[in-house]
């Protein structure tokens, strides 16, 4: 298989990420492991969103819902003393897929602005549901006392083992989404995005393809939710807040919509930028305290002038249109 320059860069990026634990360890700075682990978890969520948003043209403004469902699946089982990770994560995937199927069956019938709004509304519903679930801490959320256990195969309390697991899942999902996009299924999906009428004319009804993509994407994001709750060791309905959905979209577009490496680049750029902007205590207080002002401006500028995202700075071209 001949790799394009972009693929090489992505592989190099993943290798670089793999080198972080020993380097951080050498410099006595394990914090960067946590930071990058969080970046990669959000990158996984962004990869899943990119699948429907980038390739499917379905602008989901409620993708944080599956982050929440995945997290709740793990958290609720743990609450009842079931710490088996295989079980927890399977439930996370199945539950997210089911919720995505329910939401998708209604919303995939709509398009454009209606799709945006209906996905937002469903996520708001789940958010309020989470808040009112008193048994699971309601708005306070609850602690994940024990991280998911994988029969001794991998210990999530070991920071670097957990790190490599997240990295492996990220790599697998990147590969999976790439395969999916280039499969017959992915081609129909992309065709339906660029021209629905023509897709119908050549004999494909877009609805089942869209719904399937929506479900796959939800299930993938559920995995990110299961990882996030293990990362934070804390479960909260705040994972489903609508601003999270906005942030996930921002990651996808900042990185480069409908590109393989985009979600990773976008998640890294946004979360690292946040960390830098708010940690800039060298700046006068009134300056670094208002980092959201700059973030807002950056967001507008990216959309207006750099809409192909960070991935377009990489050599080669992934766009075929």
């Amino acid at each position: 298989m001949a790799f394009s320059p972009r693929t090489w860069i992505l592989l190099a990026l993943l290798l670089l990420l793999a080198a972080v634990p020993p380097v951080a360890d050498y410099f006595g700075q394990p914090f960067y492991l946590d930071l990058l682990r969080r970046v990669m978890i959000f990158a996984i969520a962004a990869v899943s969103l990119n699948l429907i948003l980038g390739y499917g043209g379905m602008v989901s403004f409620g993708h944080a819902a599956y982050l929440g469902i995945g997290a709740y699946a793990v958290g609720i089982l743990a609450h009842y003393g079931i710490n088996n990770g295989w079980l927890q994560w399977s439930l996370a995937i199945v539950a997210s897929a089911l919720v995505a199927a329910a939401i998708g069956s209604i919303s995939a019938r709509t398009s454009g602005i209606y799709f945006i709004m209906i996905t937002l509304a469903f996520t708001q519903m789940l958010y309020y549901l989470g808040i009112s679930l008193e048994e699971y801490g309601g708005d306070d959320g609850m602690q994940l006392k024990v991280r998911s256990q994988f029969s001794g195969l991998i210990d999530l309390n070991d920071a670097s083992a957990f790190y490599y697991l997240v990295l492996a899942i990220l790599a697998a999902f990147l590969y999976l989404s790439r395969r999916l996009v280039n499969s017959r299924f992915g081609l129909v999906l992309q065709a339906a995005r660029s021209n629905e009428a023509r897709t119908r004319a050549i004999g494909f009804s877009p609805y089942p393809y869209r719904l399937a993509a929506f479900i796959i994407s939800g299930a993938m994001c559920g995995v990110a939710g299961a990882l996030l709750v293990n990362h934070t060791a804390y479960l909260t309905p705040e994972f489903m807040n609508w601003t999270r959905s906005g942030e996930l979209m921002f990651m996808v577009i900042l990185g480069g919509i409908a590109t393989t490496s985009g979600p990773l680049l976008g998640a890294a750029a946004l979360l690292l930028l946040e960390d830098v902007l708010q940690g800039w205590s060298v700046l006068p207080k009134w300056l670094h305290e208002h980092w959201q002002l700059y973030l807002g401006v950056i967001l507008v500028l990216v959309v207006l002038f750099a809409r192909r995202g960070l991935a377009s700075l990489l050599p080669g071209n992934e766009h075929h249109d």
Binding site: I116, M249, I253, L295, G296, V297
Partner: peptide, 17 residues
């Protein structure tokens, strides 16, 4: 719509701050 949602989301952050 995607670009619009994102840019106006940025404007929300800007105006609030």
């Amino acid at each position: 719509h995607l670009d619009q949602v994102l840019a106006t989301f940025g404007l929300i952050l800007f105006f609030n701050e």
